[in-house]
């Protein structure tokens, strides 16, 4: 039996071709490592979807499932299970950064987005996709058909990193577009004005969306490990800076820490799930983060 868990390493995963395969491997790897059953614990609503046993009230049987699977499941929370997931993928140029052997932040975000799309569509729910930088570049409306996965993966795979980020404006725009309430998953490095980012997310909350923010950063962006004199060429058209990074490390880390704390605090204030990620981390961290947040919401 193939060891799927190795595909949770983004670098290993990146060596494979095809985002659909990558997505499936992530999910399989995650499930294989964490759960005896592929879909147990996948979501709270499915955990309640237990098989019918004698004595259960047959009014709660989900006949829809029975019609597809020929098995009896209790149908107590039908409304809750119609999950609508909006994947918001940041493809601004800053997402194209990778240090050392790591994958780019965009690549990492793609893996997560694909895995989530795969997972959600596998359970008959709907997934929508937004690719943005300083504006919305592509928007796939949510759909639950199996063909949606292919479309989603195609768009994710094709999205090039370009331009600057303007999350505030994009989020406001999207909040107005998403008519149906769902779960908004943001995949971004959030390298923008924190206040504008939070304001944008807040708009989703105002529209009663649930929001999960996957804050993806490269390890070098957090640790700032450079020692030699370095010319930093700003992505997104920023300035060039020649400096001694070693002398600046402490100050830089202070700034990053302050930014992260501000984002995290902002998310907490508006009841948004905040999942900080580093591109050298295993992808199951992201999936666990998502599922943990979903679990907490359902309860």
């Amino acid at each position: 039996m193939e060891n799927y868990q190795k595909y949770l390493d983004p670098r290993t995963l990146a060596s494979l071709e095809g985002l659909d395969l990558q997505a499936r491997l992530v999910v399989e790897g995650y499930v294989a490592g964490m759960h005896p059953s592929p879909y147990h614990g996948f979501s709270v609503e499915f955990a309640e979807h237990r098989e019918y046993v004698p004595g259960d009230d047959i009014r709660h049987v989900d006949w829809k499932v029975w019609s597809k699977t020929d098995k009896l499941y209790l149908k107590q929370y039908e409304e809750e299970t119609n999950l609508l997931l909006y994947l918001l993928l940041d493809v601004s140029e800053s997402m194209d950064y990778a240090s050392g052997e790591n994958v780019t932040k965009l690549q990492y975000a793609r893996f997560i987005a694909a895995a989530l799309a795969y997972m959600i569509l596998e359970q008959q729910d709907s997934v929508g996709l937004v690719v943005f930088d300083d504006a919305v570049r592509r928007y796939l409306k949510p759909a639950g058909q199996p063909s949606q996965l292919k479309e989603v993966l195609r768009v994710i795979d094709a999205a090039p990193a370009r331009e600057k980020t303007d999350m505030g404006a994009v989020f406001h725009d999207l909040a107005e577009r998403f008519k149906k309430r769902g779960v908004v998953v943001v995949l971004s490095d959030l390298l923008d004005d924190p206040a504008r980012v939070i304001a944008g997310i807040k708009h989703f909350r105002h529209r009663r969306h649930e929001v999960v923010v996957f804050h993806i950063l490269d390890p070098a962006e957090v640790d700032f490990p450079f020692r030699e004199t370095t010319l930093f060429r700003g992505l997104e058209g920023g300035a060039e800076i020649l400096t001694d990074p070693h002398a600046l490390r402490e100050a830089y880390q202070d700034e990053v820490g302050k930014f992260l704390r501000e984002i995290e605090k902002g998310c907490r204030m508006i009841d948004v799930d905040y999942v900080p990620l580093r591109t050298d981390q295993s992808l199951d961290v992201a999936l666990s983060g998502y599922l943990a947040s979903r679990s907490a919401r359902i309860r």
Binding site: S99, T230, F232, G234, L235
Partner: peptide, 10 residues
Amino acid sequence: ETSWAAMRFL
């Protein structure tokens, strides 16, 4: 030389 995203912190 390196490209750098987090220029704002730097």
